[in-house]
Every structure is written in structure tokens, then in C-alpha cells.
Design a protein around this nucleic acid. Sequence first.
DNA 1: TTATGTGCAAAACATTTGCAGGAGT
DNA 2: ACTCCTGCAAATGTTTTGCACATAA
Lengths: 137, 137
Amino acid sequence: MQHTPQMRLTTQRQIILEELGKVTSHPTANEVYDMVRKRLPRIGLGTVYRNLELMSETGLILKLEVGGTQKRFDATVDPHYHIRCLHCGKVDDIDIPVQMDINKTAAEISHYQVLGHHIEFAGICSDCSSQGVETIN
Amino acid sequence: MQHTPQMRLTTQRQIILEELGKVTSHPTANEVYDMVRKRLPRIGLGTVYRNLELMSETGLILKLEVGGTQKRFDATVDPHYHIRCLHCGKVDDIDIPVQMDINKTAAEISHYQVLGHHIEFAGICSDCSSQGVETIN
DNA sequence: TTATGTGCAAAACATTTGCAGGAGT
DNA sequence: ACTCCTGCAAATGTTTTGCACATAA
């Protein structure tokens, strides 16, 4: 008989988690790699990917499947939504009240067993619009 | 002086659009490539990518930035939301009523200039749950 | 001690791009 | 004619994986 294997709290994992907790942005795996490498210069990119994936499966962190080519990661697991700047690609948290029965309604309409939802807003952040951004590439 | 370049309606574009219109799923670029290749065996994958991108910029089709590793495409441009099966990866449309002022509220809270939003529900589709899917890999 | 984790490098994917030739207007 | 577009293949960028060694429990 096999019990659930434990996830060891290695130095690498601890530092990845710490660095991810420091920022309010939602860094890509490569950005996490850069942050962590300042403290652990010999860490491999593969390790960062493996651990981000693992931690998101455990629910320790959140893997964001938002727009753009790369996945992003978030240390805040409390339910919240996201807003992405179409100009600079930054992703911020947004805490917006949404009707509570939205999952139940979705289940009734779709005949899916609905486990959750995510809302992503898109727009131009105040940094970019103060720089006079009008059009989007 | 330069006027807006026109997008030619080539055979390739016409067939891509037709094939995309035939299905209610939201195929990946590679799936579109496979569908189109049955009618145009010599079409290149690059052409499919180029045209899907171009058509989504024009608003002819919709590029979905949903979960998973690949982007998906949708011929229905009317506003609608999506629901994704965590087991088989299928993405369906869902037409769910949402409070109308959600973008305005988001703008007030985030100080972004909000241009739109997307809601993605996640769950288990009825096909998968009828096959007795309990857990998710 | 031993299962689990790591660094490294190569592989696997998804997507984009350069270019020479082809096609629409 | 003159663009714009395509097929092809190579390049890019992201993520995953195999393996020998290292390390936490």
C-alpha cells in the first residue's frame, strides 16, 4: 500500500516561493528564474519549471492561463481576477464583486460539472496611458 | 500617401474561414491546418498561422487565449464566453448573462482603461463525466 | 539509506519569419 | 506590372524530459 508522496521543502522551492511572494506582478517562469538565480546562481531553468508546475498542482501557487505566449505564476491563492495591459503585457490583480451564483448558472446552461471560473479584463494600464499610448501593436 | 492595404480573399483564406465555420469546437492552428489540408493538400502551416492571426486582427475571427499550451480559434465573433473541459480539453461556447457594468466597475477599481473582458469556466463536460471521469490528471 | 530532487543538456512543441517564386487585381 | 500572398524550411521561443549526481528526511 502506497501513501501520498510528500513534497520536500528544498532550498530551491523555498526561495522560488519567497521570490514569488515578494512581487505583485505575475512573473513568467523565466522571470522567476531570473529572480531566483540572484540567490541561487546554479539553479536550472528546468527546476524552476518543474517546481512551479508542482506547486500549482498542489494549490500552493496559481498558474495563470492568460493571454500572451508564456504562462504566468502568482503566489496569491485567494480568489481574485486579473487585468492585463494590452500594451506592456503586465498582469495585475483585480478584486471585483461578481454575482455569486455564476458557476451554478453556467452549470445549468452548459451541462458541465463546473469547478470554477476566471475573468480576465484587458485594457491599458495607467503607466502606459500616461505615456500617451493610443494604439496597440 | 498610403491607404489601408486590402486583405485579399485568397482561396486559402476562404477555405480556412469555411472550415472554421463548419465546427462548433475551437480548433488549434494545427487542427485547422489538418482540416484545410484535406481540400488544399499543399497549403503550408505557416500560411494557416499567418492567416488566422491576420483574420483575428481584423476581427473576422476570434483568437482564444484560453488555458492549455496552444491558442484556439473561433469563427463566431458575437460576444460569448467559454467553458473548457479539464479532462479532454474541449472548449465550448456558453451564453451566460453577466451584469452589464462589469467593465466600468473594473475600470474604476483598477484605473485601467478597460477595453473588454473574457470569462472562462472550467469543469468536466458531460461526455467525460458520463465516461465516469472522477479525477483530473 | 533511499526515495526524491537537482543541474545540465538535449528534445519536443508551438509559433514566427526569410525568401524565392506564384497569384490576384 | 506590381503588390500581396504562399510554400517551404529554417529560426525562435517556451516548456518538458532523460540522466547521472546530490540531498533532505
